[in-house]
């Protein structure tokens, strides 16, 4: 389960070697924006070795490769796929064909090194107006696509609007991506909060993302990981309520009743489904119920 995704510059060993200690559910090793053109080769080899030799524990490993309109992306795929990352993050996805182009290359390399074809997933980084409008097609372009990911910095440049902390300018894009991803049955991650010194701001922004329906949120600073994990984890009251829902349902079944109420509200199928998800998530996170 991915609540937080933390970016690491691909050519900075000091950051990379401590990646797994920073409590992020997913680690994104960046070969794109964080690496200058002259160091693309160095970063690619360094990230490849990091994947090969370092133990990242339970964290999912993601590599942001260069976009399919660059000269670098094929070499990125060639070097990275054999190290079996969880997913590749493809930037600047504008349409389903971008994903299919990457998918072809991934399949070729997987086959070449004897891996099961399709084993490495794709996260599509949506950061253009075209990408937002094509979100559902992108989300359903390949079974490899595990999630959409909103990149608001490039997007607002493309939209010709100012990126603000409040984020009014990306409201539509956020909601569009959530709807597209949920319609396709995949996850969806929110854009990073970029002010590393605003401890209140990150909490608000992460809570907003969760309220909108995002599965998780990316971070460019390790200091944001805690706030994101907290925002996307069920709190004690939610866990308690979820257990009560399940207990009420079981009681009703035992007593042969059809419809039942809890705390004055009818419990219907969506509430039960949500309660099951909450309990599953709490178990995965090792969170217990306060009272036994």
């Amino acid at each position: 389960m991915i609540r937080s995704l933390l970016f690491f510059p691909g050519n900075n060993p000091n950051m990379l070697i401590n990646a797994s200690a920073l409590l992020s559910d997913a680690l994104i090793f960046d070969l794109e924006d964080a690496v200058s053109p002259a160091e693309k080769d160095a970063a690619r080899i360094l990230v490849r070795n990091t994947l090969r030799y370092m133990d990242h524990g339970s964290a999912e490993t993601v590599v942001r490769i260069n976009s399919v309109d660059t000269a670098y992306w094929r070499s990125d795929v060639q070097a990275i796929i054999p190290e079996r990352p969880s997913m590749l993050l493809l930037p600047k996805v504008g349409s389903a064909s971008d994903v299919r182009e990457l998918e072809c290359e991934m399949a070729r390399v997987e086959a070449e090194c004897g891996m099961e074809v399709g084993s490495v997933g794709i996260i599509a980084l949506i950061e253009t107006a075209l990408g937002v409008e094509n979100a559902f097609q992108i989300a359903t372009s390949s079974p490899r696509v595990r999630a959409l990911f909103l990149g608001a910095e490039d997007l607002t440049a493309d939209l010709r609007c100012k990126r603000t902390k409040e984020g009014r300018e990306i409201e539509y894009s956020r909601q569009r991506l959530v709807v597209a991803a949920r319609a396709a049955g995949i996850d969806v991650y929110d854009t990073p909060f970029t002010d590393v010194n605003d401890d209140e701001g990150i909490i608000k922004d992460a809570m907003l993302a969760r309220a909108l329906g995002f599965s998780g949120k990316a971070a460019i600073s390790p200091r944001h990981v805690g706030a994101i994990n907290d925002a996307f984890s069920p709190d004690e009251a939610e866990i308690e309520y979820a257990f009560e829902v399940i207990e009420a349902i079981e009681r009703a079944k035992a007593e042969g009743k059809g419809a039942i109420a809890l705390r004055g509200k009818m419990i219907d199928a969506p509430i039960v489904a949500r309660a099951e998800r909450t309990i599953e998530m709490a178990r995965a996170l090792g969170l217990g119920r306060r009272k036994a």
Binding site: N18, L23, P222, R223
Partner: peptide, 9 residues
């Protein structure tokens, strides 16, 4: 230092 902050927490 992010590692320092993790240890501190």
């Amino acid at each position: 230092d992010p590692v320092g902050l993790v240890m501190a927490a």
